[in-house]
Design a protein around this nucleic acid. Structure first.
Lengths: 215, 215, 215, 215
DNA sequence: GATGAATGAGGGTTCATTCAT
DNA sequence: AATGAATGAACCCTCATTCAT
């Protein structure tokens, strides 16, 4: 079983070369289309772009959802990884945070299906692949907090929601007004800095928040 | 039918009373449904709720889009007005700004079709009814700027984009985590205050922004 | 409410004339097709034969199953009624039984969907419309039993199963060998007569039955 | 490849061992699946259970029908043989008949594809493998007839149709009401006995039969 | 003018059969 | 020869829009 079997292995792999290529073509085409048009695309469009028949597509992904989830998991992962890398490369905790957002918003925020799905984070329990991204943010939050750079009271959830929120801003402006969202990012990050600002209230009761909003 | 109708004007008014009533019923029902479910709703659902037949609906609004736009114009107007009122009632320019956002995000941010449409502000030229909202923001921006409360360089577009961005946050969190968005609002508004913060760069070139992001 | 409203009634009925005609055309075409080809038919075929579009068909019957069940209910009813009538018209209890089978097997046994569905009587609890047929048989069974004509021990279930069984025989032979099934019917009915034959065992244990089979 | 192969015959035999094994595996798996689910099964299911690829399956049986027919021929044969054996083992001609039905209905009547196909006996000319079964019945018919035990006028076709008919009864009841069909068998066989009953009419004209049905 | 029935172009999915490896 | 991936026609169903009454 554990013995190498050059021939049988080759025999089994041979047909798969094409299959793998097709599967990849499908996922790639799907990622493209999903990024452009969101999850509502016609499956036939994906098949067309990937150059395979419907049957092939459905052989690899028995339900449209399977394909969509596969793409989302992959793209969320890549997204999380690229953003995480940007954070790691940064010199200090604050730069890590800013670079994280910068990268996260530059790379994938125009991916429609990603954003559609991301938006469900709060209403659907265990969403595809968001965990990874959340972990990255958690770490950033901890690091910046420990360094005393982050405004007290700011939570991972706040940072996550800020990401979704800005991601949406990117999505709707980047095509016509590239980088316009960067100004919003700047503003928000400034609001997040510790400085001499008072901490955010721990609760979110309308009264306390709205009172404090006016300072 | 073939009879002469001297008082045609008077005669025509009578049926119009019904027509107007119908039109209003349609718009009202549509507003309700569009708020709940977004623009993807089945036209039948609108007809059902308004109590008119499909034919009537399509007589008043030859395309689904016509109805949607009509509703959006109306609801954007109401939205703008309610937010504007909150701003007017405020004591000072900064309170006007915060109250504006508070009201704007409380009142209509859960209106799905509004938000869907609002998102198109930057990619579609002259969107239904957004103008009014923009005017309100423009005024707020001017007032707060004149009072030296607003961070220099902040534009109406920034405030508008912030509104869309936070509106999205409201939409995706308010049901499961009510008021969570209020924290994000607080953060963003803090980032907008003049204080001792340096002005936002006037351009949005990636370099200058990203350089300045790290301060 | 209970007041007659000639005008409004007419107004409301007017459009329905066509709808009813269509609905009937659909049901009629469906009955025809289902009789010919069974429940596996393409919905498009039914739409085509009834001369309506897919949408119309689905307006009247939101699921294919709804249409199928409607047809089955109707045809089972008609079947039960025609067979029951034949039984009523008969002179004596035994003639009632024979005429019932004669009519039942002549009228609907070639209806493929009916037979497909009928076959499910024992595996599916409360099948469409079979109840009526069962009631008729129950009555026949009681009458013939009371008259001492029916072999003791014969149950309604026996008679029902005989009907399904012979119905199948009709279905598979009537086209090529019309009336061949009639011989089988004769044989079975003779086996059901009281005469001087011993009663059927009440249980169905293989042993007792198979022992008695050899007498 | 281009090398001469003098012992081509010998060389060809080697691979055939596998081929034969495969063919057998396919037929066996097909028989199993066809018995369980009828001829409508997905070909993939057969390939899966037989452990061969689709290509292999289709090499041996170019059309699904080819495989189905092969299986049916085989299973009809086995069926005929098992029933024939039961008949042979019986002591007297009548026991032979009853044991034949008992065995035939016990052994294969739950084989869905067999029954589906059996049903076509009368509408399709020279059906797979039914001949053998027919021969068995012919013999039984002759033997019982010669012994004066079979009601005069009963034909091989009658007995065959009775078998299909009861086979159907078995199929639809045996799972939920095991042996219920045995009662029907008893009834039918009683109807077949000579006793002092009048002969079956030789023709099947509705009139003569239905007249005689009421006696 | 109002009504709601009719239309039919898609959208997701399955499966007998073919074909490259 | 064997493998199993690829194909695409056909299936059930939805919904924006039109049309007869």
């Amino acid at each position: 079983m554990a013995v190498a079997e050059p021939e049988s292995t080759a025999r089994r792999r041979a047909p798969r070369v094409d299959a793998i290529r097709n599967r990849e073509a499908i996922v790639e085409a799907a990622a493209e289309v999903l990024a452009e048009q969101g999850a509502a695309v016609d499956v036939r469009e994906i098949a067309r772009r990937s150059g395979v028949g419907m049957g092939t597509l459905y052989r690899h992904f028995p339900k449209k959802d399977d394909l969509v989830h596969t793409v989302l998991r992959q793209d969320f992962s890549r997204w999380a990884e690229s953003a995480r890398q940007a954070a790691i490369d940064a010199e200090d905790p604050w730069a890590a945070l800013t670079d994280f957002y910068q990268q996260a918003l530059t790379g994938y925020a125009r991916h429609r299906a990603i954003m559609e799905n991301f938006a469900l984070t709060w209403s659907v329990p265990d969403l595809e692949g968001i965990r990874q991204l959340r972990l990255v943010i958690e770490e950033l939050c901890a690091r910046a907090g420990a360094a005393g750079l982050l405004r007290p009271g700011v939570t991972t959830d706040d940072l996550l929601l800020l990401l979704v929120s800005l991601g949406h801003a990117v999505q709707i402006t980047d095509e016509c007004r590239p980088q316009m969202w960067n100004r919003l990012l700047r503003i928000s990050l400034d609001g997040l800095r510790a400085d001499r600002r008072e901490p955010l209230p721990t609760d979110t009761a309308p009264d306390s928040v709205s009172r404090s909003l006016r300072q």
